[in-house]
Nucleic acid binder design. Structure first.
Length: 1121
RNA sequence: AGAUCCGUAGCUCAGCCUGGUUAGAGCACUACACUGAUAAUGUAGGGGUCAGCAGUUCAAAUCUGCUCGGGUCUACCA
């Protein structure tokens, strides 16, 4: 055991961290922190896998600090906390990165580069920055198992994913359907939302838009409309039309419905068709009348309507809600062979098209408030169409041209996909046709923002594509229910963002048309009648052999010998399986959403159920996970969905979602803006500890953080600097006195007031910090620790106790001081260890190296401090607060009178309002006197006429009782005389007449404070008032001089580099006044400055010039020996 | 467009859940002081329509509604 505490020269956090890191590595500290808890209750943590194909940024440091501190804390709480690292390795960003690097596009795959080579490139690229990530992980002190991470592209991982998929398949939760997705006819491929969100894809374009007229069918349901239109007889003039607007007239042949908003007001309007000038009745949203009709035309003269005058007369015939229109039928707009009822029903048996539907998505911002609905070409359309079973028509092929059976339009491209100079816009032709047929109410160019394919620059369309779905909607209620058991931090994310998301859930579209990812393990016959879902490698290999036997030829010959070695494309696609009826089956070509990869990590990280069954059982569900709030609908969702579907369980019990890291101006960090903060540089410069402390204490994790390097500097200076100094102070004197905590622990009750106070505060801190951490509020915990170190420990305890450490002999009081300060330091570093693991460990080790109080090589192996409730003394903490306040008040009075603290003063007057207050103050009297340098404290109790008092209502206590009478009482109290107040105090109660009614008041319901002591200079804060006697007697002046002189000599000692224990001889030349002071206090001075002699003469030759209260002196200070 | 979080001093934040009468810290700035641990600290000073409007209440930074501004997620539409 060392016998001296290490004394540092400077505080150099990065250097200390490097040493600590080396030690951790040497001693396998992380591994050991898990091992020492062998057999203990596990605390389960899941690491959300990052993707290592990009560089880590500062925002990764915050979420990882959060994860790390919780895990460290729980370890210190006695739990066994394993943390398996992981890597997310599939997905589009990887593919795009590779394509960029190789200078190819998706079309080149299979041509310029084989899928095999392409995927090989992806596999290499995906862990490109793994080293950088590992480095950051290590340097920031994030303890996570980097040796055995799970990697999503491995066969084992994928095998578990397949197992999961098969479970879902067997539960009937996996199905194939169409979904409406962005599709680029020019490129012949679907686009992901990621691709659609590339900059520049949304562009303002001018399209031909048309308000088409859909003719209502007259029947029982629609009778009320025809009645309103005054058409008792079926005449040609009596036609009613629904108006619907579209910016894509090419979708009109595929129209199968019209959607209205149930709560939107619609009107039936009598008017003329502006193109054909035929009288018509039209229906549209009331709110949009102004778009089509001028106010002057309302109730205009229908009989003398002139086609040349552009003013349409119009008249509202009826008004109704959208909900009243539900189910009404209309005539098909552009009937043809390809979109006949027979054709529709051939695709969707039993479909009932051309009806009015209700949909919440309808707005009255544009168009007519009636939405032309073509299920194939819009996600909303598809959804509402499905609900009403109106069928689906896709009259445009994958190249973007009309199919056969549409007469004049067949074969024409809906947009200029071929860059044909002779291209004629089919949308215009459709509009012209409508105009001619009295089926267009308004046709115009319309400018709007429309997405374009980022590769071909051609407009994207929404198009039905085959996709596999997970029927999450089937377990929606259960997911909602279980979500309520999850502890969300902050809570609002769980109930709000996540809760709402669950409420509005749609089935999970799993399909991705890509190359590098987990293949969907489903094989199908060509007619789609038979299919097989594969759930393991073994099963696949068995099926491979079976197919080879049944189908013969060279089917699967490559895979017969060793089985399949890589579950990725292209290999799985070469495998042909055989159906039960003996037909060949090919794999469904899709890959699955990478979110499935990460959502299945609780199972796949252990290769469950093929291995580690017990391990899995012990580690599911997680006690805690944490990621950025942007993962709410990503990882948090997929984990939850799979947990519920596979095991009817939550996947995590607590989830903390942290906010974003913005730059100091509140802008999002991006490479483009050049405001990204390099985490390596930051850690290099300021240390991981200060960075972590700053990130955690500056703002709650879920608030966005405005990252400012100045904030880290402040943390470093203020918190770590103060703590470091406190330790240095301790080490300095403990080494001098040889304190090694070998003496018995002095019972706290036997220690001085101030020791009991700091220990009581320390217990309070432990209690509060523990509570905060238990509630996943590390910000609170950090701030509490900070306050304690700064306010209590350093600026009060150490400041007031300084003398106890360097004065006097090594006996009880001094030992008590050492024991107390030691306990504070050691406890503080244990409390802060989870947040800032390096410096705390260093200090802990240095302390423990001498005292050996703990068995353990690291603060991270021992237990978190436990509160000793019996040491908490609230009264003591309160009176110390009084002492601090009183001192502060006296100092401010000194300041006002311009009397420095070194000048002793005679007396402080303190009016006390109760005996308790007096007792409390008496106990801290010595502390106050020493701190403010006064000789006596006098308590004023009999105060009438001497102290001026003030009374005001205790609003909290009185509010409920008085209610509206509060104001009157408040005014009455304001007018109380000194006599009234003292009467009240004497009686303990007062009867106040308010509005002819007596209001009884007790002392507890008012606050009485002393305000003034006539003739004295006073200061007050709350109930505390102090007055200071500022007379300086000659006696006091002498002492002031002596103290000033001591101060100067101490400075010389320090400047001369003397040791704190060196003895000196002093010679001083002083004029008469000062000389008298010095000689009078000769003994005191010698004791203070450790001088054996203090010689006072009239002159000395050289020596150092000093000034004592405006007197010039010369001194010679000599070190002895 | 919807959901959600945020808006308090020049800056970073507390206080809001549970309403109570002078709205607090720290940083920065100015002056003075203290220091035998201190890169600290103390005292004093300037600095606030608590984003805005309306409501509830004896009383609103705090509760409710609306509006504005910022962020994020989702959707992107006739």
């Amino acid at each position: 055991m060392a016998n001296r505490y290490k004394e540092f020269k400077h505080l150099n956090l990065p250097a200390i961290e490097k040493e600590v890191l080396d030690r951790w590595q040497r001693e396998n500290a992380f591994q050991k922190s898990v091992e020492v808890r062998e057999g203990a209750q596990p605390f389960v943590f899941y690491e959300g896998p990052p993707s290592a194909n990009g560089m880590p940024g500062i925002h990764h440091v915050i979420s990882r600090t959060l994860k790390d501190l919780v895990c460290r804390y729980k370890t210190m709480q006695g739990f066994k906390v394993e943390r398996k690292g992981g890597w997310d390795t599939h997905g589009l960003p990887v593919e795009l990165g590779v394509e960029k690097e190789l200078g190819i596009t998706k079309e080149d795959i299979g041509k310029k580069i084989s899928i095999e080579e392409y995927n090989q490139k992806c596999r290499e690229a995906v862990l490109r920055y793994k080293d950088k990530w590992d480095e950051l992980t290590t340097k920031m002190g994030y303890w996570v198992d980097l040796e055995h991470p799970y990697i999503t592209f491995t066969n084992e991982y994928i095998e578990t994913l397949w197992w999961c998929l098969k479970q879902l398949y067997e539960k009937g939760l996996l199905y194939k359907s169409v979904s409406i997705q962005p599709y680029s006819p020019a490129a012949g491929t679907g686009l992901s939302s990621h691709e659609l969100n590339q900059p520049g894809t949304y562009r303002n374009v001018k399209d031909t838009s048309a308000v088409a007229m859909f003719k209502a069918v007259r029947n029982e349901k629609s009778a009320f409309l025809f009645q309103a239109a005054n058409c008792q007889l079926p005449t040609a003039n009596c036609e009613i039309f629904f108006l619907a607007w579209t910016t894509t007239p090419w979708t009109l042949p595929s129209n199968l419905g019209l959607t209205v908003g149930p709560n939107i007001d619609y009107v039936l309007v009598k008017t003329f068709n502006p193109y054909t000038h035929l009288p018509v009745n039209v229906i549209l949203a009331k709110a949009l009348l102004g778009k089509y009709f001028k106010p002057e035309g309302e109730n205009g003269d229908f009989d003398s309507y002139d086609e040349k005058v552009k003013l349409l007369p119009w008249k509202i015939l009826a008004e109704f809600k959208g909900s009243e229109l539900e189910g009404l039928e209309y005539e098909q707009l552009l009937p043809d062979e390809a979109n006949s009822l027979a054709a529709v029903q051939a695709i969707t048996p039993g479909a009932k098209p051309w009806r009015i539907l209700l949909g919440d998505f309808v707005t009255t911002e544009d168009g007519t408030g009636i939405v032309h609905t073509a299920p194939a070409f819009g996600a909303d359309d598809f959804r509402v169409g499905k609900k009403y079973n109106i069928g689906i028509l896709t009259l445009v092929d994958r190249e973007g041209k009309f199919v056969d059976g549409l007469g004049e339009f067949s074969g024409r491209y809906i947009k200029d996909y071929k860059s044909d100079p002779a291209y004629v816009d089919v949308n215009v032709d459709i509009s012209v046709k409508l105009k001619k047929e009295n089926r267009a109410f308004k046709v115009e160019k319309y400018e709007h923002s429309y997405p374009h394919c980022w590769r071909t620059d051609k407009p994207v369309v929404y198009y039905p594509l085959d996709a596999w779905f997970i029927r999450t909607t089937a377990v929606k209620d259960r997911m909602v229910e279980l979500n309520k058991t999850i502890n969300w931090k902050p809570e609002s994310t769980g109930t709000g963002r996540f809760g709402n998301w669950l409420e509005n859930m749609v089935d999970w579209n799993l399909s991705r048309s890509r190359y590098w990812g987990t293949p969907l393990p489903i094989w199908r016959t060509e007619d789609g009648r038979e299919e097989k879902c594969i759930g393991s490698i073994e099963e696949l290999n068995a099926e491979i052999r079976k197919a080879s036997e049944v189908l013969g030829g060279d089917v699967n010959t490559h895979y017969l010998h060793n089985g399949i070695l890589d579950l990725h494309k292209p290999y799985v696609d070469e495998v042909i399986l055989v159906s039960d009826s003996g037909k060949p089956m090919r794999r469904e070509p899709d890959l699955i959403d990478v979110w499935f990869d990460s959502g299945a990590m609780p199972y796949a990280q252990w290769h469950f159920p093929f291995e580690n069954q017990e391990k899995f059982t012990q580690n599911f569900p997680a006690d805690f996970i944490a990621e950025g709030v942007d993962q709410t609908r990503g990882w948090f969702y997929t984990l939850h969905a799979l947990g519920v579907m596979l095991f009817d369980s939550v996947a995590y019990k607590t989830v903390v979602s942290n906010g974003l890291v913005l730059d100091k101006n509140g802008n999002k960090m991006s490479k483009r803006l050049g405001n990204v903060v390099d985490p390596f540089k930051t850690i290099e410069q300021f240390g991981a500890d200060a960075t972590r402390w700053y990130l955690i204490t500056n703002a709650s994790p879920w608030d966005n953080l405005k990252f400012d390097i100045e904030g880290i500097k402040e943390v470093q200076r203020k918190f770590f600097g103060t703590l470091y100094n406190t330790y240095q102070f301790f080490a300095l004197y403990a080494n001098v006195d040889g304190f090694t905590f070998k003496e018995d622990y002095i019972p706290v009750a036997e220690r001085p007031e101030i020791d009991r106070w700091i220990l009581s505060s320390l217990q309070t801190l432990i209690k509060q910090a523990t509570a905060a951490l238990d509630e996943y509020e590390p910000t609170q915990a950090g701030r509490l620790i900070e306050d304690f170190v700064d306010e209590h420990l350093s600026n009060w305890y150490v400041r007031l106790c300084r003398r106890r450490f360097w004065k006097g002999d090594y006996e009880q009081d001094k030992i008590a001081a050492y024991q107390t300060l030691y306990e504070c330091l050691e406890t503080v570093v244990r409390l802060m260890a989870p947040i800032s693991p390096f410096f705390s460990d260093e200090i802990f080790i240095q302390l423990n190296a001498v005292t050996g109080k703990h068995h353990g090589q690291s603060v991270h192996h021992i237990l978190f401090p436990e509160v000793r409730e019996e040491l908490i003394d609230t009264e003591l903490e309160e009176r110390m607060q009084l002492a601090q306040d009183a001192s502060s008040l006296v100092l401010s009075l000194r300041k006002k009178a311009n009397i420095k603290v070194r000048q002793p003063l005679q007396k402080v007057l303190l009016p006390v309002l109760s005996p308790t207050m007096e007792q409390q103050l008496q106990k801290v009297e010595d502390l106050i006197k020493a701190e403010v340098n006064v000789k006596e404290m006098e308590y004023l109790t009999d105060t009438e006429g001497f102290i001026k008092k003030k009374i005001k209502p205790n609003f909290v206590a009185l509010g409920k009782k008085l209610g509206a009478r509060m104001k009157a009482v408040s005014t009455a109290l304001q007018n109380f005389s000194q006599h009234d107040i003292s009467l009240f105090e004497k009686e303990g109660r007062y009867s106040l007449p308010i509005n002819d009614e007596a209001v009884e008041l007790t002392l507890a319901e008012v606050e009485i404070t002393s305000e003034d002591i006539p003739g004295w200079s006073v200061a007050s804060k709350g109930p505390l008032t102090v007055a200071l006697d500022i007379n300086i007697t000659p006696e006091l002046e002498d002492e002031g001089n002596a103290r000033e002189f001591v101060n100067r000599i101490q400075k010389i000692r320090k400047d001369s580099g003397f040791d704190v224990t060196d003895r000196i001889d002093v010679k001083v030349a002083a004029n008469n006044g000062i000389a008298a002071s010095l000689s009078k206090f000769n003994n005191y001075i010698c004791a203070e400055i450790l001088a054996d002699t203090l010689e006072i003469t009239s002159t000395i030759a050289d020596g150092i010039e000093i000034e004592v209260n405006e007197n010039q002196l010369k001194v010679i200070v000599l070190k002895k020996g």
